[in-house]
């Protein structure tokens, strides 16, 4: 798969909650090749500060119009600048990067939290196009974090919701719901993307239940191309680069969370 540097025109931004936005970009070459689970490296400014690109998971692709959507949390200088970008502006985007999900599941469950739900959204969309409606289990701190339910509602069969404070769905983490879902619903593969403690706990439970599990890791990275080794971590018997060998791995390939 070829990677491109695209000068992408912004066609819109949308507020999803107090700290999360969606940006839509025209990037036809990336859109043509991107598969669920891949990411792009976005340059938010042409100046030297912030200097590095920011890696963001692809949340949606419109191959017909050559558009991609990214969903990001406004947490630092770079994402603050990105949040102020307007329709018509052009930003440089490198992608599509990394390897995506193995989409062969017939009865999948998606488990996510935070912006980890962005690549899972593209996965749900592409599964739905293939006539498979996955179940989704999402966790957040409060009901406000679960704005995602509106994005997923038309793509999935069942939706499990958990919040730390109990303001929406079951009180607790996704682990409060997961065991029962695994027991009752006979999934053949579980796809996880979210905070490291969530992925570690979910993949352990899924593996123990004898079900295949794919995780999408997040690491600080500079190049996104496998050159700088910032995101390298220990796999089973070998070093793995999250940007190049991942970000999606089978749970059994990961030893460092």
């Amino acid at each position: 798969m070829t990677k491109y540097v695209e000068e992408a025109r912004v066609i819109g931004q949308r507020v999803l909650n107090r700290a999360t936005k969606q940006i839509d970009l025209i990037a036809p070459r990336i859109a043509a090749e991107a598969v669920p689970g891949q990411f792009v490296n976005v340059q938010v400014s042409r100046r030297t500060a912030p200097l590095l690109r920011r890696p963001l998971g692809i949340a949606w692709v419109d191959k017909q119009h050559g558009a991609i959507s990214l969903i990001y949390r406004i947490i630092g200088d770079a994402t603050k600048i990105l949040a102020d970008v307007c329709s018509g502006d052009v930003i440089s985007v490198v992608g599509p990067l990394g390897h995506g999900f193995d989409c062969s599941a017939k009865h999948p469950l998606l488990v996510g939290g935070g912006t980890g739900l962005a690549p899972l959204l593209y996965l749900a969309e592409s599964m739905e196009e293939e006539g498979i409606r996955p179940d989704v289990l999402m966790g957040g701190r409060t009901a406000d974090d679960l704005f995602w339910k509106d994005e997923y509602v038309n793509l999935v069969e069942r939706m499990g919701l958990t919040t730390d404070d109990g303001s929406l769905g079951t009180r607790g983490t996704v682990m409060a719901e997961l065991p029962l879902m695994l027991q009752r619903l006979h999934y053949d593969c579980v796809y996880v993307c979210g905070p490291a403690p969530m992925m570690k706990a979910v993949s352990a439970a899924v593996t123990e239940a004898g079900i295949k599990c794919q995780v999408s890791l997040e690491r600080y990275m500079a190049c996104g191309l496998g050159a700088c080794l910032s995101c390298s971590c220990q796999g089973v018997g070998k070093r793995i680069k999250v940007c190049q060998d991942g970000p999606v791995f089978w749970a059994g390939e990961v030893t460092e969370w």
Binding site: L51, L52, Y220, A222, S232
Partner: peptide
């Protein structure tokens, strides 16, 4: 292994 700093890393 990596962190951004003013105009550098």
């Amino acid at each position: 292994r990596v962190v951004e700093t003013p105009s550098g890393m």
